[in-house]
Design a protein around this nucleic acid. Structure first.
Lengths: 248, 248
DNA sequence: CGCAAGTTTGACGCTGCTCAATCACTGTGG
DNA sequence: CCACAGTGATTGAGCAGCGTCAAACTTGCG
C-alpha cells in the first residue's frame, strides 16, 4: 500500500487501482515539519487541505489563562481538515506533536478527486464521521470517567487506531510521541496526575513503557477495566454484507 | 420562513425560492413525540434522517455504571443525523428532552435534494461543520473549565444558538426545557453542583429563572466571565464578501 | 559536559462528589 | 376540592479525587 493516507482510506472502501492512483497522486507532494510547529492557527483560513503521512499532530485550543485542551490526535493517514474550504475561519489550531511529513492538497484538487472517484468520496466522508464519533467519546471521558479509566481508555483507543494503520508491531509495541503533559491536555487532567496514573498502571502490570515506546501488557483486561469498547471507532464504514452493493 | 429547518439552513446560504421549496418538501412529514422517548438507540441502523422541527433533543451515551454524558443538544431546525446512511451503526442515542415535532426523511430523498440543489448541499455540510466545532468546545469545557465558567459558557452558547433560530424573545427570555440533571449530564458535573452554581449565578445577578424560562441578565458580562466567544459557532458559513461568488 | 525539557515524588488544600433530608411543584384519583 | 405521590430543586455535611506548588531526579541533545 503506497502511503498512510491510502492505507487509512482503504479501511472504508474497496478501491480500484485507479482510485488508489488518484489518492496517491494528490497526496504525493509532502513536506517535512518539526515537532512544535503549527500547521494551521485559529482564525486563519487555510488554502489547502493537509494530510498527515507520518508523525502525530493535534487539534487544540488555548484558553485565556493559558490552559490548553487537545481536542483530537491526528495520526498517519489522517486528514487535518477536509472542510477547510467551507469554513470562514479555523476555530482551533493544528500543531505537530512530532516530526512529520505533511501533504498539502489544494481543496479544488481534492474535490475533483472526489467527483471522479465516488468510492474515495465515500471513504472520506466515512473517515470524517469516525472522527466525530471519536470526539464524542473524548467528551464522555472528560465528563464522566475518573483519571484511571480515562487514561486507560485513551491508551486502548490509541492502540486500536495505530493497529488499524499498521503502526503496532508484532510484540504489541508502538511509538507514543506524547509527553505526559500532552496526554494530560488531551484528557483534561493535570500532568502530575497523569504521571501518577501511569505509574499505577505500570504497577498493576497493565502497561510497559520505555522512552517513547508503549506496550499494553494485558489489552483485554485494560479495555475491561476502563470500559473501552472499540465499536465507536467504526472499524468498518458499513456492514460487510453491504460492502459490494453500496459502493460505486 | 416556512419551518425551523429552512430557517436554520438559511444561515448558511442565500437560497432561491426553489431551494426553499425543496427543503420544505422533504421536511413536511412530521410526527409528534413525547419527552423521554428515544428517536434512535445506540447500535441501531436507522433508515431515515430525522429533523427536529420543534422541541429539544440530545445525543447521549450511557456508561456501564449508569453515568450518562450528553454529547450535544439538538434544537429546532437541527438535523439529528445527516450521515445515517454511511454508518454501519449508531454509536450513541438520540433522546427527546421535551415534546417535539420530528420530520423523518428517507436518506435517498435527502441525497437527491442535495444533488439538485447544491446550495442546500453546501448549507447542510456547513451545518455539520458547525456541529463539529460545537462538540470541540464542549470538550474544552469538560476538560478545562471550572463549574462556574462551564455553566455560564453553556448558557451563553444556548442563548446564542436559540437567538439564531428566533427562539429568544424581545426581553431576552427563552425556554430552557432542561432539568438540572440534564444540564449536569451535558457538562460533566453533578446535578447538585449545577444547582449550587445556578444559585450563585442568580445571586450575582447574572441570570433570572422561573419555571422553564431563562434570561441572562447581563449577557456580555456573563460571556466575559466565562470566556465565551461565539466565533466557534460559525455564525456565517463563509466570509460575507464571498457569499455571492462561492455559492451555486 | 551542561543545559533544557520531561518525569517523578511529596505535601497540602480546594473543587466538586456523594449521601441524605427537606422543600416545591405538578398531575392524579377519590 | 383535597390528599397524595412522583419528580425536580434546594440545602447541608463530610470527604476524596485531583490540582497546585515545589523540589529532586532523569533523559535528551547540542
Amino acid at each position: 500500500m503506497p502511503n498512510a493516507f491510502a492505507r487509512k482510506l482503504r479501511r472504508f472502501a474497496d478501491f480500484t487501482p485507479e482510485d488508489i492512483a488518484g489518492i496517491v497522486r494528490v497526496s504525493s507532494q509532502a513536506e517535512t515539519w518539526r515537532r512544535g510547529q503549527d500547521l494551521v492557527r485559529q482564525g486563519e483560513r487555510p488554502e489547502n487541505v493537509r494530510i498527515l503521512l507520518s508523525g502525530w499532530a493535534s487539534r487544540y485550543k488555548v484558553l485565556d489563562d493559558g490552559r490548553r485542551q487537545i481536542c483530537a490526535f491526528l495520526i498517519p493517514g489522517d486528514i487535518c481538515d477536509l472542510h477547510v474550504s467551507l469554513l470562514n475561519h479555523m476555530d482551533h489550531n493544528i500543531g505537530l506533536l512530532s516530526r512529520a511529513r505533511v501533504a498539502s492538497v489544494p481543496a479544488a484538487e481534492l474535490h475533483s478527486l472526489m467527483e471522479r472517484h465516488r468510492r474515495v468520496e465515500r471513504a472520506l466522508w466515512c473517515s470524517s464521521l469516525a472522527d466525530d464519533a471519536l470526539s464524542r467519546e473524548w467528551l464522555v471521558s472528560a465528563g464522566r470517567r475518573d483519571a484511571f479509566t480515562r487514561v486507560g481508555h485513551r491508551l486502548c483507543e490509541i492502540r486500536t487506531r495505530l493497529t488499524e494503520v499498521g503502526l503496532v508491531d508484532r510484540n504489541g509495541e508502538f511509538d507514543l510521541p506524547l509527553s505526559q503533559e500532552e496526554l494530560a491536555d488531551s484528557l483534561g487532567l493535570s500532568a502530575v496526575h497523569v504521571n501518577r496514573t501511569l505509574t499505577r498502571l505500570r504497577g498493576e502490570g497493565l502497561i510497559e513503557q520505555n522512552r517513547r515506546r508503549m506496550r499494553l501488557s494485558q489489552p483485554e483486561r485494560l479495555a475491561d477495566l476502563s470500559g473501552f469498547d472499540p465499536a465507536y471507532l467504526h472499524p468498518c464504514g458499513w456492514p460487510a454484507e453491504e460492502r459490494s452493493t453500496l459502493i460505486g
